[in-house]
Design a binder for these strands. Sequence first.
DNA 1: CTTAGCTCATTACCTTTGCTAACAAAAATA
DNA 2: TATTTTTGTTAGCAAAGGTAATGAGCTAAG
Lengths: 149, 149
Amino acid sequence: MPEVVAQQVKSDVGLASALRSSTLRLSRQIRRQRVEGVDLTANQLGVLGALGKHDAMTIGELAAHEQVKPPSMTRIVSNMEEAGLVARRPHDTDKRQIVVELTESAHALLHANRRRRDEWLQTKLKKLTPEERDILRKAAAVLERLAAT
Amino acid sequence: MPEVVAQQVKSDVGLASALRSSTLRLSRQIRRQRVEGVDLTANQLGVLGALGKHDAMTIGELAAHEQVKPPSMTRIVSNMEEAGLVARRPHDTDKRQIVVELTESAHALLHANRRRRDEWLQTKLKKLTPEERDILRKAAAVLERLAAT
DNA sequence: CTTAGCTCATTACCTTTGCTAACAAAAATA
DNA sequence: TATTTTTGTTAGCAAAGGTAATGAGCTAAG
């Protein structure tokens, strides 16, 4: 480890900077790992992820979540529907709205993606020392709390 | 912290999963923080970041780095040149190649962006306990090493 | 209760952006 | 020196997002 980093990290401003840099770098690499043969656009991936968390969302909610205008989301969902990734369903009480849900194969894809990323990360973790892994074990919980607030 | 997480993190597979989730989540939030009034496409941001690290790159190098075909990079660079973000310059020895560099204002923009993200992260860090910050201090170095390999 | 206004998704059209193919200039190689 | 390869650009095409306009359904004022 370069001395410069060790020194910077002592101050809080240095901690923020070091954490920003290392987190962004690692996340870029994690993001790069995904199942082959399936090429989705960034927005399709975003929709998949959002539905993975929230189960069922309307077109408008998805558009807001993905920072995209409603007409664009209409087309994104249509494409994903043709690809068998999502299904449209009428809203229970409001007939204007359309509820979008993941299909079984989309759930499987999400799961496979996560699995692949985890496997990749595990092989990298094996190269660290037990002490380093221990530090990351504690840090994961803190990072989770940091991202949650 | 939920017990489930604490338990999972004990195993290495759980560590990878927890680290993936928390890192991706935090990085998404960091990425969201940027200077207002300047809206750049994802590729423009990528070029800016790449040039921020490597100082001077050819069109071909940039295309490879951003996972884009050379003709696309030609246009991206042309647009950024018009926007005053980059400058073209002939290669020293190979007259086929074009070297792209950041302008002063692009450097300033990159700096402002980093600064803004750091400030945002610092305010979040302040809400943690000193012990948690200490964990992150150690973890930053390990994450850096993890991303470097 | 009914009409006016609002919300949500969609359609039509335009612009942007990336890709492939074709090309010109320069370098490498035979 | 002649041929092949590499590098960037131009031209034309397809995909994807945005705005404006439309239609169906909800909501609230009269």
